[in-house]
């Protein structure tokens, strides 16, 4: 098998006395769509932030494309639930921010920005500022910004959590299309079981106290997946049982 794009090895993270992660292991192959699923507080965001390089590991290590992670970098792009767009830049300039920061000539920056403005269907809003956009449009900008920077590993922390159901479904669809066309690797955090099964090649179930990985389910259903099919429901039942047994263990403790 080819070299994995991401290896997480016995990862531990503490914040003072709080132990957010202990002994988390995960190997991701290039091109996989991974969903991290788990109850609130089980360390999903923490794991993603360590991979992004925003937080240093307290134990173990994270290796991306053969190199240990020591800090944030353009190869790993994060899409935040609260967008994190630069309010003083237009849609086009937000998307061109990475290429410009990396010192590309401005003609090249403009070309890249325009291309990704189009990829996410915001050509009409290219000159709008973030405060003029809907939540779904802002999240499209955030995705395009990461793509424009050639991120090969896209990290998404509940990116559609703040959107209404219809917008969420459209963006899930668009994300899958972009993922397939551009052969991205995606690490996607969610606490919605259905969203995980709809999107993922593999669903990684995490459990708190301190956060670790309890299951790694491959979803073999063909895409686009039908959320009302018996096969989909079967997987949902299995994952749901897994998450609930987890809660019961917690309650007993």
């Amino acid at each position: 098998m080819a070299e994995p794009i991401l290896v997480i090895d016995k990862l531990g993270k503490r914040y003072g006395t709080v132990e957010a992660l202990r002994g988390a292991d995960l190997v991701v192959q290039r091109g996989e769509f991974i969903c991290l699923l788990g109850a609130s507080g089980c360390g999903k965001s923490t794991l993603l932030r360590v991979v992004a390089g925003f937080e240093a590991a307290s134990a173990g290590r994270v290796v991306v494309s053969g190199k240990p992670v020591t800090g944030p970098g353009p190869g790993r792009g994060m899409v935040f639930q609260d967008y994190g767009l630069f309010p003083w830049l237009t849609v086009r300039d937000n998307i061109g921010f990475g290429p410009r920061a990396r010192g590309l000539p401005s003609a090249e920056v403009a070309r890249i920005a325009d291309r990704f403005v189009e990829t996410v269907g915001l050509t009409r809003f290219a000159n709008a500022f973030p405060h003029q956009l809907s939540g779904g449009m802002k999240q499209r900008v955030a995705i395009a910004r990461v793509l424009a920077n050639d991120a090969e590993l896209v990290l998404m922390d509940e990116p559609f959590g703040a959107l209404d159901a219809m917008t969420r479904e459209r963006l899930q669809d668009e994300l899958l299309t972009i993922w397939a066309e551009r052969r991205l690797t995606v690490l996607f955090v969610t606490h919605a079981i259905e969203e995980a099964i709809l999107l993922a090649d593999r669903v990684i179930v995490m459990s708190p106290g301190p956060g670790h990985i309890v299951a790694d389910e491959r979803i073999d259903l063909p895409r686009r997946r039908d959320v009302s099919s018996p096969e989909f429901n079967e997987v949902r039942r299995r994952l749901s049982a897994m998450l609930h047994s987890d809660h019961q263990r917690e309650d007993a403790a």
Binding site: F54, G71, P72, G73, R76, F80, D82, G84, P87
Partner: peptide
């Protein structure tokens, strides 16, 4: 959050001031 976004897009710590702090 803006510092995180800028750093993941390739802005080095020494460039944070003109690229993020000043405009923000």
């Amino acid at each position: 959050r803006l510092f995180e976004a800028a750093s993941m897009l390739g802005v080095s710590p020494t460039r944070m001031f003109p690229k993020v702090v000043l405009p923000a």
